[in-house]
Design a protein around this nucleic acid. Structure first.
Lengths: 348, 348
DNA sequence: TTGAAAGCGATACCAT
DNA sequence: ATGGTATCGCTTTCAA
């Protein structure tokens, strides 16, 4: 491999200084058209490939890229529909600002830390459920703007989140409005530790995932209004995968046939519940009402289609990217959800 | 903002040379544990954040990232289910190799070229339908390994593609085996220019998209075996979106009620066809058989579920990444499809 | 094992 | 508008 042609070579060949040659590429207005052409000609002649990206980065300190990390989710980022919508919004804003998107990929926590340290980016976007995490610590050590999505991270430059309490409350209220009386909650994991199945008061109290805590609190707030105490509600933790929630739902319906309202803490979970209900012969929404949270496209294609509290995940991602890329972030944005009424529920 | 602590500061504080300090971080084995600890202590003391990524990159010439470009599809990469599966595979292999994934994002061709030139990556992965494209030219100017997915790019270091001819042929043969006699093809765009609606022989001949050419040739090869000439087959180009193909299908079925077999060139397209068929009162698969190509998950949830020629897009992405990251790429990998029989067709 | 010094390739400042 | 030059922060010879 021949030695790389560099700016100095071009400058010499064109009979100008290195600085002028640099300007010809980076700030064309600063150099007389005539000279500029001479420089370009010399560049073409020598086969100069344009300014070296890494050298430029070192000099300017700008990477031109935004790092995106899913600490809970490293290998699943491209599987979870909500994560993909976030990415779509992030990509949109980054495209708009001429910045690339760097996905931090790793197989485990330790590799993720290395990946974070190897990433040439100007800022980080983190989507996660809890903030006590070595990956997050590694990101913070880099001392670059860090915007968190969905979870407050101590010391973050900004946060974009959902009004999860309202989402939960409105979801539960809607099922009450549909006449449901006996509820089951299919919840996301409340802590980083895998734990499936029935949830007790202890685990609820210890829930380290803000999103889970808030949505739960919202559910119970609405149910309390109808005189239903937390202890009257079944509560099961699921993996955020439809297969898994379907299995949990099947068991739940078998052991507790009286259930007539299912609160799914995500659409992915709720979709599994609808599948299980249909298979077990329950009529949705007549015998059983189901509501999710998110509003993913797949919810349109269940049988019946899924009623849900819709959030604009694309916009959430876009806003987070915008914040990360802005000079002075430092706010918290809280987004709202809206009821998206489809077939899995029916108001009285 | 205080001046950044750098390696030299740490070295001085620890009373060692810069080189030794560097080794303490990058090649710990080369430095005596005792000295190493002294260096780390000094680093912690001074608040050293670890080696500067960009400086390291410039020195070593390694970026630790793989660039991914969807030239046809820039803003759209995170919408197309097949692109997402590719990304999943790419992410998996990159994680395995400790490399990050840089998504080149832009709003248009010109910005995309800039984005390519600003990306600090070690190699590029390109998914596209045609190779005569300024973005691709820009990538090639960088003189780094370039692996193309689905399309042969002249000068690429390697290519991972599908046996598209076989996919088309087997798809059409399957519908023949199901008893279909009057066919319509819902095709992907044959050229970079948007063009919807009926396709004529001219456009078929001019098709610059290899994937489209090959699948079409496959369809016609199978149909020829049943004595059906290309001119006996309706052929419409669609945007690769279910809504759009649904609209095209509705028109097609209205004007040509005799159609009993639809060859969808992608699952996204075929899904729209199923929707339109149901809405227009056609019984699938009894009155009308539909087959797609791809095997995306959404195909399981149509009514009826979509029969398709399945390809392993995740593996396709993984293989491409593996090739891009390998020392000596330089091959062409061709993947096969398999018939995935679901409800939208029924063999006699 | 450790130290000294030479780059990696470009940009930005300060003169002119 | 252009030239000269310090500098970005590190890794990697080459010697000792």
């Amino acid at each position: 491999m021949a030695k790389r042609v560099k700016l100095l070579d071009v400058a010499k060949a064109a009979g100008v200084s290195q600085g002028t040659a640099s300007n010809a590429f980076g700030k064309p207005d600063l150099v007389r058209p005539e000279v500029r052409e001479r420089i370009f000609a010399a560049a073409k002649e020598l086969g100069y490939r344009g300014p070296h990206v890494m050298a430029r980065m070192l000099r300017t300190g700008k990477a031109g890229a935004l790092g995106v990390v899913f600490p809970d989710n490293l290998e699943y980022a491209f599987t979870d529909p909500v994560a993909i919508e976030l990415l779509r919004g992030i990509g949109r804003e980054c495209a708009q600002q001429g910045v690339n998107v760097m996905i931090i990929s790793a197989q485990n926590q330790q590799q993720a830390i290395a990946a974070v340290n190897n990433a040439a980016v100007d800022a980080f976007l983190v989507h996660c459920y809890s903030d006590n995490n070595d990956i997050i610590a590694a990101i913070q050590r880099r001392n670059q703007p860090l915007i968190s999505i969905d979870t407050d991270i101590a010391g973050a430059a900004g946060t974009v989140a959902l009004d999860d309490f309202a989402a939960g409350k409105n979801a539960a209220q809607h099922l009450l409005d549909c006449g449901a009386k006996r509820f089951a909650i299919l919840s996301l994991q409340a802590t980083d530790h895998d734990h499936f199945g029935p949830m007790n008061a202890n685990r609820v109290g210890a829930a380290s995932h803000r999103v889970v805590r808030e949505r739960l609190a919202g559910y119970h707030a609405a149910l309390a209004g109808a005189g239903i105490a937390p202890s009257d509600v079944l509560h099961v933790e699921c993996d955020n995968q439809s297969d898994h929630s379907a299995k949990m739902t099947a068991e739940l319906l078998a052991s507790h046939p009286e259930i007539d309202g299912i609160l799914g803490m995500s659409d992915v979970i709720a979709i599994g519940a609808i599948d299980a209900a249909r298979i077990s012969g329950r009529k949705v929404p007549d015998d059983l009402k189901v509501i999710g949270i998110d509003g993913i496209a797949a919810g349109e294609r269940t049988d019946p289609p899924l009623t849900t509290m819709y959030q604009d995940s694309v916009e959430k991602g876009r806003l987070a990217a915008e914040m990360a890329l802005s000079e002075a972030p430092g706010k918290t944005i809280t987004l709202k959800t809206t009821l998206l009424l489809r077939g899995s529920s029916k108001p009285l």
